[in-house]
């Protein structure tokens, strides 16, 4: 099983190395950029409010990066199998659920690089910055949250990407139906906001997708 995992990991690395490298660079750079100027000698320590604003606005990039990485890695994980109509995978002498786990695990192992980059970048940024009194740095918490967001995004898109054209059709059909209902409701002057309701249910309610919302703060009170 280890040999199989190494083989799958290697193939997946070959397909997604550009995504991993670019994602790792971005994950390393964002925390450093978010604290740039915090230790500039000519300004002294940044005012706490100014720093928090900067950190908060840079923080919106973490969930975006996590989503993009999850999406692209999931697509890369299945692209070759889709091209070959899954014949190769289905004729390998391994239970299909094991093969899916190997593909999933390999993708997540590769995503460890950008997660580690967030941790290293955050730690370096904090070490080189002079924080105003009363503020604390949370590099480990930020990295753990980023890891969870990457995992959720990757798992979600992996499941969708593994599906057939029929599955994709069903998902698109549901979205189209929601849009159609919206259009009909607006023509009939009915106050209906399905997208808002979906956002509330999916992102704001308790559940794994809630990790993408809220403030992503490397430095906070």
């Amino acid at each position: 099983m280890i040999a199989m995992f190494r083989a799958v990991l290697y193939s997946q690395w070959k397909w997604s190395r550009l995504i991993v490298v670019l994602g790792t660079v971005a994950a390393f750079a964002i925390p450093l950029l978010s604290l740039q100027g915090a230790a500039r000698a000519d300004r002294g320590a940044l005012q706490a409010q100014e720093l928090l604003r900067a950190v908060q606005s840079w923080g919106t990039l973490y969930p975006l990066l996590a989503t993009a990485l999850g999406l692209l890695m999931a697509i890369a994980a299945w692209a070759a199998d889709h091209r070959g109509r899954h014949i190769h995978a289905l004729t390998l002498p391994i239970e299909r659920w094991r093969y899916v786990l190997l593909r999933f695990g390999a993708g997540f192992v590769l995503l460890a690089a950008p997660i580690a980059a967030v941790l290293i970048g955050s730690s370096l940024a904090v070490l080189t910055a002079t924080l105003p009194p009363g503020l604390q740095a949370y590099p480990i918490a930020l990295a753990v949250r980023f890891a969870f967001a990457v995992f959720v995004a990757y798992a979600l898109f992996f499941a969708v990407s593994a599906g057939t054209a029929r599955t994709a059709g069903i998902i698109l059909g549901v979205i189209a139906a929601v849009i159609l209902v919206h259009v009909v409701a607006s023509i009939a002057n009915i106050d209906l906001n399905l997208f808002g309701a979906a956002q509330t249910v999916l992102l704001l309610g308790p559940g794994p997708l809630a990790v993408f919302t809220g403030r992503w703060m490397l430095v906070d009170v």
């Binding site: 397909w15 070759a80 070959g84 014949i87 190769h88």
Partner: peptide
Amino acid sequence: YVPEQPHLDPTL
């Protein structure tokens, strides 16, 4: 098994 159409990943 050898399928009718080669199904292997062209990038390997």
